[in-house]
């Protein structure tokens, strides 16, 4: 993938985004005026110690939380101040989530888990099933479609979660510690998969991690400390 051209509208842009929790004595500044731009097709790792504000930044990017001040522009459009419903629709159509704890619905088959975002889009059953199976094939789990999460290994569960995130063909894949619950070998497999999605399908990936060897898969690493960006570097990816 070519580096983004100068002057392109960033897909994700923070302008002096601050987030304050609580008030008075109990006030906590999670983000203290952050500027950040992420372009299409980028693969960004967000790093930092706990309490550095990286999770807050991720929640704001994911439209799960709103800044106290500053602006969040999605594809050049300011979305600060939208209501809950509009945030939900943004998540539904633009974003795919992968969590540390997989967050699959229990007692629900893999393919039904992958179908879930399409259900909320009101897609007809037949088309939904086709697309869910295609997404499962992309993560190499077409043979496990009828298995429930409890019948799958951690790595397989995370693959199902990735299939669920990409089945809607989102602009951005948001991964919050995607390998946090996995062993090293499985972590590599998952990261190879994420890397491939970024490289081959051009999905923009934003990933929170605290493990340097996981961050090494990204093309760019943004480090947060005390609610500010400490460093922002492009890097050579590890060979996938």
């Amino acid at each position: 993938m070519a580096e983004p051209a100068e002057g392109d509208t960033p897909l994700i842009e923070f302008r002096a985004v601050a987030k304050v929790y609580g008030s008075g004595e109990a006030e906590v500044r999670a983000l203290a005026g952050v500027d950040l731009a992420i372009h299409r097709h980028e693969f960004v790792a967000i790093m930092g110690p706990s309490g550095s504000g990286k999770s807050t930044a991720m929640n704001i990017i994911g439209c799960l939380d709103t800044p106290t001040s500053g602006d969040y522009l999605f594809d050049g459009i300011p979305i600060t101040g939208l209501d809950r419903r509009q945030y939900t629709l943004l998540r539904r159509h633009m974003l795919g989530f992968v969590f540390q704890g997989f967050n699959l619905l229990p007692r629900t088959s893999a393919v039904e888990n992958v179908e879930l975002p399409l259900v909320y889009r009101g897609m007809p059953q037949r088309e939904r099933r086709q697309r869910a199976l295609a997404a499962l094939a992309q993560v190499g789990l077409e043979r496990r479609a009828d298995h429930q999460p409890s019948q799958l290994s951690g790595g397989q569960q995370q693959r199902v979660a990735i299939a669920r995130a990409i089945v809607t063909e989102p602009a951005v894949l948001l991964a919050d510690e995607p390998t946090g619950n996995l062993d090293t070998r499985t972590s590599r497999e998952i990261m190879d998969l994420v890397g491939a999605l970024n490289r081959d399908r051009g999905i923009t990936v934003v990933m929170v991690t605290h493990e340097p060897d996981i961050a090494a898969y990204a093309k760019r690493v943004v480090r947060f400390v005390d609610g500010r960006i400490e460093s922002d570097e492009r890097q050579e990816q590890v060979a996938a």
Binding site: R91, R92, L116, Y120, T168
Partner: peptide, 16 residues
């Protein structure tokens, strides 16, 4: 609660 969180995160509206 967690299930509801997942549903909301992946695009379920309040009404749904």
């Amino acid at each position: 609660t967690r299930e509801i969180g997942i549903r909301l995160a992946i695009g379920a509206l309040e009404g749904q």
